[in-house]
Design a binder for these strands. Structure first.
Lengths: 153, 153
DNA sequence: CATTACTCTACTAATAGAATAGGGAATATA
DNA sequence: TATATTCCCTATTCTATTAGTAGAGTAATG
Protein backbone atom coordinates (compact mmCIF):
# COMPACT_ATOMS: atom_id res chain seq x y z
CA UNK A 1 0.00 0.00 0.00
CA UNK A 2 1.10 3.50 -0.83
CA UNK A 3 1.91 5.55 2.28
CA UNK A 4 0.22 8.86 2.97
CA UNK A 5 3.58 10.48 2.37
CA UNK A 6 3.63 9.29 -1.23
CA UNK A 7 0.00 10.14 -1.78
CA UNK A 8 0.51 13.66 -0.38
CA UNK A 9 3.64 14.05 -2.48
CA UNK A 10 1.86 13.10 -5.67
CA UNK A 11 -1.04 15.42 -4.96
CA UNK A 12 1.26 18.33 -4.22
CA UNK A 13 3.36 17.68 -7.30
CA UNK A 14 0.28 17.43 -9.49
CA UNK A 15 -0.96 20.70 -8.04
CA UNK A 16 2.34 22.31 -9.03
CA UNK A 17 2.27 20.68 -12.46
CA UNK A 18 -1.19 22.08 -13.09
CA UNK A 19 0.05 25.66 -12.73
CA UNK A 20 2.00 26.62 -15.83
CA UNK A 21 5.19 28.15 -14.35
CA UNK A 22 3.46 30.59 -12.06
CA UNK A 23 6.62 30.87 -10.00
CA UNK A 24 7.27 29.52 -6.51
CA UNK A 25 4.27 28.29 -4.53
CA UNK A 26 4.05 28.46 -0.74
CA UNK A 27 4.00 25.26 1.32
CA UNK A 28 1.06 26.65 3.21
CA UNK A 29 -0.84 27.30 -0.01
CA UNK A 30 -0.31 23.75 -1.23
CA UNK A 31 -1.15 22.34 2.19
CA UNK A 32 -4.41 24.22 2.39
CA UNK A 33 -5.39 23.55 -1.21
CA UNK A 34 -4.77 19.80 -0.93
CA UNK A 35 -5.83 19.31 2.67
CA UNK A 36 -2.43 18.14 3.86
CA UNK A 37 -1.00 18.92 7.36
CA UNK A 38 1.38 21.79 6.68
CA UNK A 39 4.33 20.66 8.79
CA UNK A 40 4.10 17.17 7.36
CA UNK A 41 4.03 18.49 3.82
CA UNK A 42 7.11 20.55 4.67
CA UNK A 43 9.09 17.35 5.34
CA UNK A 44 7.80 15.77 2.16
CA UNK A 45 8.63 18.71 -0.09
CA UNK A 46 12.07 18.98 1.47
CA UNK A 47 12.78 15.35 0.69
CA UNK A 48 11.56 15.82 -2.87
CA UNK A 49 13.87 18.81 -3.15
CA UNK A 50 16.84 16.87 -1.79
CA UNK A 51 16.21 14.32 -4.52
CA UNK A 52 16.11 16.81 -7.34
CA UNK A 53 12.39 16.56 -8.00
CA UNK A 54 11.60 19.99 -6.62
CA UNK A 55 13.48 23.25 -6.34
CA UNK A 56 12.90 26.00 -3.82
CA UNK A 57 13.42 29.64 -3.18
CA UNK A 58 13.67 31.18 0.28
CA UNK A 59 12.38 34.47 1.63
CA UNK A 60 9.57 36.65 0.41
CA UNK A 61 8.22 35.56 -2.94
CA UNK A 62 9.77 32.17 -2.30
CA UNK A 63 8.28 28.71 -2.28
CA UNK A 64 8.56 25.46 -4.15
CA UNK A 65 8.47 24.72 -7.86
CA UNK A 66 9.12 21.69 -10.04
CA UNK A 67 12.75 20.88 -10.72
CA UNK A 68 11.91 19.46 -14.14
CA UNK A 69 9.06 19.54 -16.58
CA UNK A 70 6.02 17.50 -15.56
CA UNK A 71 6.66 14.98 -18.33
CA UNK A 72 10.13 14.28 -16.91
CA UNK A 73 8.95 13.33 -13.42
CA UNK A 74 7.63 9.79 -13.15
CA UNK A 75 5.41 8.43 -10.42
CA UNK A 76 7.93 5.65 -9.86
CA UNK A 77 10.65 8.13 -9.00
CA UNK A 78 8.45 9.98 -6.52
CA UNK A 79 7.24 6.83 -4.81
CA UNK A 80 10.77 5.44 -4.54
CA UNK A 81 11.96 8.60 -2.81
CA UNK A 82 9.24 8.50 -0.17
CA UNK A 83 8.32 4.83 0.20
CA UNK A 84 11.47 3.08 -0.92
CA UNK A 85 11.79 0.39 -3.58
CA UNK A 86 8.82 -0.75 -5.64
CA UNK A 87 9.89 -4.39 -5.52
CA UNK A 88 7.93 -6.79 -3.31
CA UNK A 89 11.18 -8.45 -2.23
CA UNK A 90 14.62 -6.87 -1.73
CA UNK A 91 16.19 -9.60 -3.88
CA UNK A 92 14.34 -8.35 -6.99
CA UNK A 93 14.87 -4.64 -6.47
CA UNK A 94 16.89 -2.83 -9.12
CA UNK A 95 17.33 0.33 -7.10
CA UNK A 96 17.84 -1.20 -3.63
CA UNK A 97 18.93 -4.79 -4.09
CA UNK A 98 19.99 -6.92 -1.22
CA UNK A 99 19.79 -10.65 -0.75
CA UNK A 100 16.97 -12.18 1.26
CA UNK A 101 18.25 -13.71 4.48
CA UNK A 102 18.01 -17.46 4.53
CA UNK A 103 17.28 -17.79 0.85
CA UNK A 104 19.03 -20.98 -0.12
CA UNK A 105 19.79 -20.16 -3.73
CA UNK A 106 18.57 -16.97 -5.33
CA UNK A 107 19.18 -18.20 -8.85
CA UNK A 108 16.72 -21.06 -8.50
CA UNK A 109 14.11 -19.49 -6.20
CA UNK A 110 10.67 -19.79 -7.78
CA UNK A 111 9.10 -17.19 -5.50
CA UNK A 112 11.78 -14.75 -6.53
CA UNK A 113 11.10 -15.43 -10.21
CA UNK A 114 7.42 -14.58 -9.80
CA UNK A 115 8.16 -11.51 -7.69
CA UNK A 116 10.58 -10.31 -10.32
CA UNK A 117 7.72 -10.42 -12.82
CA UNK A 118 5.63 -8.37 -10.39
CA UNK A 119 8.39 -5.84 -9.92
CA UNK A 120 8.89 -5.51 -13.66
CA UNK A 121 5.19 -5.05 -14.31
CA UNK A 122 4.90 -2.43 -11.58
CA UNK A 123 7.93 -0.42 -12.53
CA UNK A 124 7.06 -0.58 -16.22
CA UNK A 125 3.87 1.28 -15.40
CA UNK A 126 5.11 3.65 -12.71
CA UNK A 127 8.35 4.62 -14.44
CA UNK A 128 6.48 5.32 -17.67
CA UNK A 129 3.67 7.43 -16.21
CA UNK A 130 4.70 11.02 -15.61
CA UNK A 131 2.96 13.86 -13.81
CA UNK A 132 1.97 15.16 -17.25
CA UNK A 133 0.46 11.77 -18.12
CA UNK A 134 -1.58 11.78 -14.93
CA UNK A 135 -2.91 15.24 -15.67
CA UNK A 136 -3.88 14.14 -19.17
CA UNK A 137 -5.62 11.09 -17.75
CA UNK A 138 -7.56 13.26 -15.34
CA UNK A 139 -8.68 15.53 -18.16
CA UNK A 140 -9.75 12.61 -20.29
CA UNK A 141 -11.72 11.12 -17.42
CA UNK A 142 -13.40 14.45 -16.79
CA UNK A 143 -14.42 14.73 -20.43
CA UNK A 144 -15.79 11.21 -20.44
CA UNK A 145 -17.79 12.01 -17.36
CA UNK A 146 -19.23 15.11 -19.02
CA UNK A 147 -20.25 13.06 -22.05
CA UNK A 148 -22.04 10.57 -19.86
CA UNK A 149 -23.90 13.43 -18.21
CA UNK A 150 -24.93 14.88 -21.59
CA UNK A 151 -26.24 11.54 -22.76
CA UNK A 152 -28.15 11.21 -19.52
CA UNK A 153 -30.17 14.38 -20.15
CA UNK B 1 7.07 -5.23 0.42
CA UNK B 2 5.97 -8.74 1.24
CA UNK B 3 5.83 -9.38 4.99
CA UNK B 4 7.74 -12.23 6.60
CA UNK B 5 4.38 -13.80 7.33
CA UNK B 6 3.62 -14.11 3.62
CA UNK B 7 7.12 -15.27 2.80
CA UNK B 8 7.01 -17.92 5.52
CA UNK B 9 3.56 -18.99 4.38
CA UNK B 10 4.67 -19.42 0.79
CA UNK B 11 7.74 -21.41 1.81
CA UNK B 12 5.70 -23.69 4.05
CA UNK B 13 3.05 -24.21 1.39
CA UNK B 14 5.66 -24.97 -1.24
CA UNK B 15 7.26 -27.47 1.11
CA UNK B 16 3.90 -29.18 1.46
CA UNK B 17 3.26 -29.03 -2.28
CA UNK B 18 6.61 -30.70 -2.94
CA UNK B 19 5.59 -33.80 -0.98
CA UNK B 20 3.13 -35.83 -3.05
CA UNK B 21 0.30 -36.49 -0.53
CA UNK B 22 2.50 -37.90 2.15
CA UNK B 23 -0.21 -37.26 4.71
CA UNK B 24 -0.23 -34.62 7.46
CA UNK B 25 3.02 -32.83 8.22
CA UNK B 26 3.93 -31.52 11.66
CA UNK B 27 4.26 -27.79 12.26
CA UNK B 28 7.55 -28.45 13.98
CA UNK B 29 8.84 -30.38 10.98
CA UNK B 30 7.98 -27.57 8.58
CA UNK B 31 9.38 -25.00 10.97
CA UNK B 32 12.69 -26.75 11.26
CA UNK B 33 12.98 -27.59 7.59
CA UNK B 34 12.28 -24.02 6.48
CA UNK B 35 13.97 -22.21 9.36
CA UNK B 36 10.82 -20.51 10.61
CA UNK B 37 10.09 -19.81 14.32
CA UNK B 38 7.73 -22.61 15.27
CA UNK B 39 5.19 -20.60 17.27
CA UNK B 40 5.03 -17.98 14.56
CA UNK B 41 4.48 -20.58 11.88
CA UNK B 42 1.70 -21.99 14.03
CA UNK B 43 -0.25 -18.74 13.71
CA UNK B 44 0.37 -18.58 10.00
CA UNK B 45 -0.76 -22.12 9.25
CA UNK B 46 -3.84 -21.61 11.40
CA UNK B 47 -4.81 -18.56 9.41
CA UNK B 48 -4.26 -20.43 6.17
CA UNK B 49 -6.47 -23.20 7.48
CA UNK B 50 -9.22 -20.78 8.50
CA UNK B 51 -9.18 -19.52 4.94
CA UNK B 52 -9.51 -22.91 3.33
CA UNK B 53 -5.99 -23.10 1.96
CA UNK B 54 -4.84 -25.75 4.42
CA UNK B 55 -6.53 -28.56 6.29
CA UNK B 56 -5.39 -30.11 9.54
CA UNK B 57 -5.67 -33.21 11.62
CA UNK B 58 -5.23 -33.24 15.38
CA UNK B 59 -3.64 -35.80 17.66
CA UNK B 60 -1.02 -38.38 16.94
CA UNK B 61 -0.32 -38.77 13.26
CA UNK B 62 -1.84 -35.32 12.77
CA UNK B 63 -0.48 -32.20 11.15
CA UNK B 64 -1.22 -29.90 8.22
CA UNK B 65 -1.84 -30.70 4.57
CA UNK B 66 -2.97 -28.74 1.54
CA UNK B 67 -6.69 -28.11 1.28
CA UNK B 68 -6.55 -28.20 -2.50
CA UNK B 69 -4.19 -29.35 -5.20
CA UNK B 70 -1.09 -27.17 -5.64
CA UNK B 71 -2.33 -25.93 -9.01
CA UNK B 72 -5.48 -24.59 -7.36
CA UNK B 73 -3.72 -22.39 -4.81
CA UNK B 74 -2.49 -19.09 -6.18
CA UNK B 75 0.15 -16.84 -4.67
CA UNK B 76 -2.33 -13.98 -4.79
CA UNK B 77 -4.76 -15.81 -2.54
CA UNK B 78 -2.06 -16.63 0.01
CA UNK B 79 -0.69 -13.10 0.11
CA UNK B 80 -4.15 -11.58 0.44
CA UNK B 81 -4.88 -13.76 3.47
CA UNK B 82 -1.73 -12.74 5.30
CA UNK B 83 -0.89 -9.26 4.03
CA UNK B 84 -4.27 -7.98 2.93
CA UNK B 85 -5.15 -6.55 -0.48
CA UNK B 86 -2.65 -6.41 -3.33
CA UNK B 87 -3.84 -2.99 -4.48
CA UNK B 88 -1.59 0.03 -3.81
CA UNK B 89 -4.66 2.09 -2.88
CA UNK B 90 -7.88 0.96 -1.19
CA UNK B 91 -9.92 2.67 -3.90
CA UNK B 92 -8.63 0.24 -6.55
CA UNK B 93 -8.91 -2.95 -4.52
CA UNK B 94 -11.30 -5.56 -5.84
CA UNK B 95 -11.25 -7.66 -2.69
CA UNK B 96 -11.19 -4.88 -0.08
CA UNK B 97 -12.47 -1.73 -1.70
CA UNK B 98 -13.05 1.40 0.24
CA UNK B 99 -12.95 5.01 -0.84
CA UNK B 100 -9.85 7.10 -0.13
CA UNK B 101 -10.59 9.82 2.40
CA UNK B 102 -10.47 13.29 0.92
CA UNK B 103 -10.48 12.09 -2.66
CA UNK B 104 -12.52 14.69 -4.45
CA UNK B 105 -13.87 12.55 -7.27
CA UNK B 106 -12.83 8.95 -7.66
CA UNK B 107 -14.15 8.72 -11.22
CA UNK B 108 -11.77 11.40 -12.47
CA UNK B 109 -8.72 10.75 -10.26
CA UNK B 110 -5.65 10.29 -12.43
CA UNK B 111 -3.56 8.75 -9.66
CA UNK B 112 -6.30 6.20 -9.12
CA UNK B 113 -6.32 5.35 -12.84
CA UNK B 114 -2.59 4.59 -12.81
CA UNK B 115 -2.82 2.63 -9.56
CA UNK B 116 -5.62 0.60 -11.02
CA UNK B 117 -3.28 -0.41 -13.83
CA UNK B 118 -0.69 -1.40 -11.24
CA UNK B 119 -3.22 -3.44 -9.30
CA UNK B 120 -4.39 -5.20 -12.45
CA UNK B 121 -0.86 -6.02 -13.53
CA UNK B 122 0.04 -7.35 -10.09
CA UNK B 123 -3.04 -9.47 -9.61
CA UNK B 124 -2.87 -10.81 -13.13
CA UNK B 125 0.48 -12.31 -12.26
CA UNK B 126 -0.15 -13.37 -8.67
CA UNK B 127 -3.61 -14.82 -9.24
CA UNK B 128 -2.35 -16.78 -12.23
CA UNK B 129 0.75 -18.29 -10.62
CA UNK B 130 -0.04 -21.30 -8.47
CA UNK B 131 2.11 -23.28 -6.05
CA UNK B 132 2.51 -25.86 -8.80
CA UNK B 133 3.71 -23.16 -11.21
CA UNK B 134 6.29 -21.98 -8.71
CA UNK B 135 7.59 -25.52 -8.26
CA UNK B 136 7.85 -25.92 -12.01
CA UNK B 137 9.70 -22.62 -12.25
CA UNK B 138 12.13 -23.74 -9.57
CA UNK B 139 12.80 -26.99 -11.43
CA UNK B 140 13.34 -25.19 -14.70
CA UNK B 141 15.76 -22.76 -13.04
CA UNK B 142 17.66 -25.64 -11.47
CA UNK B 143 18.01 -27.37 -14.84
CA UNK B 144 19.22 -24.19 -16.48
CA UNK B 145 21.76 -23.80 -13.74
CA UNK B 146 22.98 -27.36 -14.28
CA UNK B 147 23.34 -26.72 -18.00
CA UNK B 148 25.44 -23.66 -17.35
CA UNK B 149 27.65 -25.68 -15.05
CA UNK B 150 28.06 -28.41 -17.67
CA UNK B 151 29.05 -25.87 -20.29
CA UNK B 152 31.50 -24.39 -17.84
CA UNK B 153 33.43 -27.64 -17.49
C1' DC C 1 -6.77 -42.02 29.84
C1' DA C 2 -2.39 -40.36 28.56
C1' DT C 3 0.05 -38.61 24.83
C1' DT C 4 0.24 -36.08 20.80
C1' DA C 5 -0.60 -32.11 18.17
C1' DC C 6 -3.39 -28.51 16.64
C1' DT C 7 -6.32 -24.16 18.55
C1' DC C 8 -6.84 -19.91 20.49
C1' DT C 9 -6.11 -15.70 23.20
C1' DA C 10 -3.08 -12.69 25.14
C1' DC C 11 1.12 -10.42 25.59
C1' DT C 12 5.68 -8.11 24.40
C1' DA C 13 9.37 -5.77 21.77
C1' DA C 14 10.84 -3.42 17.94
C1' DT C 15 9.99 -0.81 13.96
C1' DA C 16 7.64 2.12 10.80
C1' DG C 17 3.99 5.54 9.81
C1' DA C 18 2.00 9.92 10.65
C1' DA C 19 2.41 13.60 12.39
C1' DT C 20 3.97 17.99 15.68
C1' DA C 21 7.31 21.40 17.63
C1' DG C 22 10.51 24.84 17.37
C1' DG C 23 14.63 27.07 16.49
C1' DG C 24 17.98 28.16 12.51
C1' DA C 25 19.43 29.99 8.00
C1' DA C 26 18.76 32.43 3.77
C1' DT C 27 16.54 36.07 1.08
C1' DA C 28 13.97 40.21 -0.30
C1' DT C 29 12.84 44.70 0.59
C1' DA C 30 12.11 48.81 3.23
C1' DT D 1 21.14 46.88 7.95
C1' DA D 2 16.91 45.58 10.19
C1' DT D 3 13.05 42.82 9.68
C1' DA D 4 9.57 40.03 7.88
C1' DT D 5 9.19 36.09 5.14
C1' DT D 6 9.94 31.48 3.96
C1' DC D 7 12.28 27.40 3.58
C1' DC D 8 15.67 24.14 6.40
C1' DC D 9 16.59 20.80 9.77
C1' DT D 10 16.55 17.98 14.04
C1' DA D 11 14.11 16.06 17.61
C1' DT D 12 10.09 14.30 19.76
C1' DT D 13 5.51 12.18 20.19
C1' DC D 14 1.73 9.05 19.26
C1' DT D 15 -0.16 5.16 17.08
C1' DA D 16 -0.35 1.02 14.41
C1' DT D 17 1.84 -2.80 12.48
C1' DT D 18 5.15 -6.46 12.34
C1' DA D 19 7.45 -10.17 14.36
C1' DG D 20 7.66 -13.15 17.72
C1' DT D 21 6.61 -15.57 22.52
C1' DA D 22 3.77 -17.89 26.16
C1' DG D 23 0.63 -20.87 27.84
C1' DA D 24 -3.73 -22.87 28.64
C1' DG D 25 -7.35 -25.36 25.97
C1' DT D 26 -9.39 -28.88 22.74
C1' DA D 27 -9.58 -32.87 19.85
C1' DA D 28 -7.91 -37.33 18.20
C1' DT D 29 -5.40 -41.57 18.71
C1' DG D 30 -3.92 -45.80 20.62
Amino acid sequence: MLSKKSKYALRALLALARRPSEGPVLISELAEQEGIPKKFLELILLELKNNGILQSKKGKGGGYFLGRKPDAISLGEVIRVLDGPLAPLPCVSQTAYHACEECGDEATCGIRAVMKDVRDATSTILDRESLADVLRRTERLQQEKKKVLVYAI
